[in-house]
Write a protein that binds this DNA or RNA. Structure first.
Lengths: 344, 344
DNA sequence: AAAAACTGTGCAAACGTTCCCAAAAACGTC
DNA sequence: GACGTTTTTGGGAACGTTTGCACAGTTTTT
C-alpha cells in the first residue's frame, strides 16, 4: 500500500515533451524558453507535482539531510540547540535526523554509523560525556563527511566548532557566589574528558584566584556519566557534604537539576543553605526551590551558527581548509529571592 | 566533496559475479548456494559494504522513515514519547524525522507536507492545539499514507490511535484536590478543539459530581494556543483569581508549569495557597515550588505502542480495515510536603 | 550565400538497488 | 547417454531524477 504521485515522466508525456526538458524547466536550469518553462510550471502546479527527493538524492549522491547527535533531547539546552539547527536547515532545504547518546559512547558510535549509512550530507555533534576515542569520527571525516562540533568539542580535530564562552560563564557564576559571601565553593562537573569540563573548571579556578581563595581539588567532583544515573549524582553530593560547602558551582544542565534533586533527597536539612549557581537552559528555573543562579548558553544561536558552518562545508566547491571556532557569550541570570524561597 | 563507498557492482566485479547474485547473497533471498553466499558475505564484510539506502528506497518505493509531529520537543511528555518511538523504530529498521508545530496549525500543515514530500512511509502525529481542520490529513491518508494518532487525536478519523486514560487521570487529580479539602476547584485547560481537553474536562466534571460539587463554567479557562504565549496564560490566571479558587486542575504539561509561573509572577501572595494538580511528565516536579500533584502519562509506552501500530500498517500486505484505540493508564503522583514547601 | 554561433530540445546514460525471466549447471532417472 | 527436474546464476529492466552530448532550427558573422 504505497501512495503515488506524478513524476517528471508523466508531465513529459502529458505535455509531449522530453523528461530532460521538464526537468530543466522545473529546476530553472540552463537556457530554456520562457514559454515551455511556464507551460511546464503551470502543469506541474496543476497536478501538484513534487519531485521525488529519493531519486534526486540517488542521482546527485547527496541526501539533503543532516545528522544531529546530542546527549538527550529532553534537556532544554539541547532542545533549544535543535530548534536553532532546524530553523536554518529547513530554510536551506535540508532535513535533520536527531539521535541521542544518553551520554553513552557506544550509543554515540552506533548513532554515527547509523547516520553515515543513511548517507547524511553532514554531521552536527556534541560528544557524549563518556567519549574519549574519536577515531571513528576521524575516519568518516577523512572519507569526506563534513562534521561540525558544538558545545562538547574535541581538542585536536581540525574542523569548525561552536561553543559558548565556558570560561567566562564559569567565572561569572563562581564570582557571583563569592560576591554573595560564600567561602567554600564546591564544583560539581561533568566527565573529565569533555572540553566544557576543562574550560569551566578553569573559569572556576580563575574566579577563586581573583579573590584569593585557595583551590581545593577535593571540592571538585566529576560525574563520568554526566549525571545520567542518580546514584552517580548522589554519591558525588555525599562526598561533597563533609567539606561543608556553602556554595556549589555546577557545570551542566542535567547536573544542576540532578544535584538539587539529590541534595533535597539526601540532605534536605541543608539543601536550602547551600547557594547554587549552575549552567542550565531550563525555562523552569523560576519554579525551582531552592532557587539558583543560572548560566544560560545561547543555545538556539549555537544551533544556527553550527548549521550555517556545516552547510557551508557541505556546499563548498573545494575542500575547506580554513576552520573557525565560534565562541558565543553566556548570560548570568541571578537568583531571584522570590516569595517561594523566603528562607534562603 | 562526497565520500565514496563500495557498491554491489564493485563486489560483483571483484568476485566475477553478477549484481543479481551479489544482491541475493546479501539479502539472503531466494535460493542461492551456501558457497557463493559465504564468499560474497565475507568480501562484503572485508570492504565494509553498506547498502545504499537511497537506491534501495528508490527501487522499493519506500523510505524506511517515519515522520513525527509533536508540539515541541522541549516538553518532557513529548520527548519521552519520542524516546519510545525511537526505541521501536530503530529496531525495526526505520529512522524518524521529528518536526514541531509549536501549537500552530499552519506549521503543522507545513510539516506534514514537508514530511510527505520526503516520502515518509508513515506518520505519527499529535495534533496542534489550534488544529480544527484535518482534511489535509484525510487526503494523504486516502492516498495511502498510514497515519497513527497519539495523545491528541481527532474524533472522526478511522485509524489507529493511542491515548492515555484522560478521563480517569483527570478524575483522579480532581478527586485528590477535593479529598485534600479544596472547595473551589478551577480548571485550566487547553484549546477546546483537542480531544484531551474534552476528555479531561469530563473527568474533572465527574469528580465534582461524585462529591456533589456544583460545576461552574466560569471556573474553566481555555488556552487556545496551549500556553505557548505567556500573555495567554497570565490572562487566564487573572480571570480565574477573582473566583478565589483554592485548587486548580490543569490539563497539560506546558500549562501546568506555565500556570505556576504566571501565578508566582502576578499573584505571588496567593501562589502558595492554591493547590495544584496537573498533567505533566516533567522529571523536575520535585524541584517545583509551590509543589504540585501530577498526573503522569505513560509517554514512553505511548510512543512504543503507536509505533508498533504504525509499522504494522506500513508493512501490512492488504489495506488495514480494523482499527484500535489503545488506552493507557495514567499515574497520580501526590504532592510531597517536602522541606521546600513548609508553608503550604 | 555560406559558415559560424547560439537556442532550445531530445536521447540516453547514470546513480545503486531489486527482481523477473531466462540460461546454464548440476543432478537424477530410465 | 538422453531426457526431465531442480538449483544456481546472469541479463537487463525498472525506480525517478539529472545532465552531457548531439542535433535541428534560428540568428549572426564574414
Amino acid at each position: 500500500m504505497r501512495f503515488e504521485t506524478s513524476t517528471i515522466k508523466d508531465i513529459a508525456k502529458a505535455l509531449g515533451l522530453s523528461t530532460s526538458t521538464v526537468s530543466r524547466a522545473l529546476r530553472d536550469r540552463y537556457e530554456i524558453s520562457e514559454e515551455t518553462k511556464k507551460l511546464v510550471l503551470a502543469y506541474a502546479e496543476k497536478v501538484n507535482y513534487r519531485a521525488n527527493p529519493i531519486a534526486r538524492s540517488l542521482k546527485e549522491r547527496r541526501s539533503y539531510s543532516i545528522g544531529i547527535i546530542v546527549s538527550e533531547i529532553a534537556n532544554n539546552f539541547f532542545s533549544q540547540v535543535i530548534n536553532g539547527i532546524e530553523s536554518i536547515a529547513y530554510d536551506r532545504g535540508y532535513h535533520v535526523i536527531i539521535t541521542q547518546t544518553h551520554e553513552s559512547h557506544k550509543q554515540e558510535k552506533l548513532n554515527v554509523e547509523h547516520l553515515a549509512s543513511r548517507s547524511i550530507d553532514g554531521l552536527l555533534i556534541a560528544l557524549s560525556s563518556e567519549t574519549q576515542d574519536i577515531n571513528y569520527l576521524r575516519d568518516l571525516y577523512a572519507k569526506g563527511l563534513p562534521i561540525v562540533f558544538f558545545d562538547r568539542v574535541p581538542e585536536d580535530f581540525e574542523t569548525h566548532k561552536v561553543i559558548a564562552n565556558n570560561f567566562k560563564g564559569a567565572f561569572d557564576a563562581t564570582e557571583h557566589l563569592i560576591l554573595s559571601g560564600k567561602k567554600t565553593i564546591a564544583h560539581l562537573t561533568n566527565s573529565e574528558n569533555l572540553s566544557i569540563t576543562k574550560e569551566r573548571l578553569k573559569g572556576y579556578q580563575a574566579a577563586l584566584a581573583k579573590y584569593h581563595i585557595e583551590f581545593k581539588p577535593e571540592l571538585v567532583k566529576y560525574c563520568q556519566h554526566g549525571g545520567m544515573h542518580n546514584a552517580e549524582l548522589e554519591t558525588a553530593v555525599q562526598e561533597l557534604i563533609p567539606h561543608k560547602p556553602d556554595g556549589i558551582f555546577i557545570s551542566s544542565d542535567r547536573l544542576t537539576t540532578g544535584c538539587i534533586m539529590a541534595l533535597k533527597k539526601t540532605n534536605p536539612e541543608i539543601a536550602h543553605r547551600i547557594a547554587i549557581a549552575g549552567f542550565t537552559n531550563s525555562n523552569l528555573v523560576e519554579l525551582f526551590s531552592p532557587s539558583l543562579t543560572s548560566v544560560k548558553q545561547p543555545a538556539f544561536e549555537m544551533g544556527q551558527v553550527a548549521t550555517e558552518l556545516l552547510i557551508s562545508m557541505i556546499e563548498a566547491k573545494r575542500p575547506v581548509t580554513e576552520f573557525e571556532t565560534k565562541i558565543l557569550n553566556t548570560e548570568l541570570v541571578r537568583m531571584q529571592k522570590a516569595l517561594g524561597n523566603r528562607f534562603l
